[in-house]
Design a protein around this nucleic acid. Structure first.
Length: 155
DNA sequence: GCCAACGTTGGC
DNA sequence: GCCAACGTTGGC
């Protein structure tokens, strides 16, 4: 089975790589976009490599690494009426939203900033840096995954 | 806080 | 099924 590569965005004020380091594992709940959901339910496999991206913060960029720890399961937050992620259409028999579980791999000593990724010509095809690209889960090629992590030594 | 880009909703 | 209005994302 070939291991594959993803970039997953999170606002660090909501859930950061440090939070994942503390918890060890976490459900990647709250995804409410069909394309992102379909990546989790159809394409992700246990063991896939993840770049953990911090968005909407002082230094947006790749903050660490994680790995898919468990396949997609119904997102519990859709059943919680008090949650901002509550989904009235969802029932236990027919859930609408799903989430994989991820496990902590490492926290980078310094965030690899989006600005640096944008300056790297060999990464110009990266989905992340396409204007208006808001998808919170994006597939990466192995080459892109390695190139982004390789930027760490230039910081 | 602004705003462009994008996704979703809902009237028709 | 169209499309205008609205809400969200996320960099700056």
């Amino acid at each position: 089975m070939s291991t594959r590569f993803w970039l997953m965005k999170s606002e660090p004020e909501v859930f950061s790589i440090a939070d994942l380091a503390t918890q060890g594992r976490s459900l990647w709940d709250g995804v409410r976009n069909y394309q992102a959901r379909n990546f989790m339910t159809k394409d992700m496999q246990v063991g896939d490599e993840i770049l953990f991206y911090h968005s909407s913060c002082e230094v947006p960029g790749v903050a660490g690494r994680a790995r898919v720890a468990a396949p997609a399961q119904p997102d519990p937050s859709q059943f919680d009426k008090k949650s901002p992620y509550y989904e009235p259409r969802a029932t236990k028999d027919s859930p609408v939203w799903f989430c994989v579980e991820v496990e902590f791999v490492s926290q980078l000593p310094k965030v690899i900033p989006l600005t640096l990724i944008k300056e790297t010509s060999s990464l110009k095809d990266l989905l992340l840096i396409r204007p208006g690209q808001r998808l919170s889960i994006q597939p990466l090629t192995e080459d892109q995954f390695k190139k982004i992590l390789g930027l760490e030594k230039t910081l």
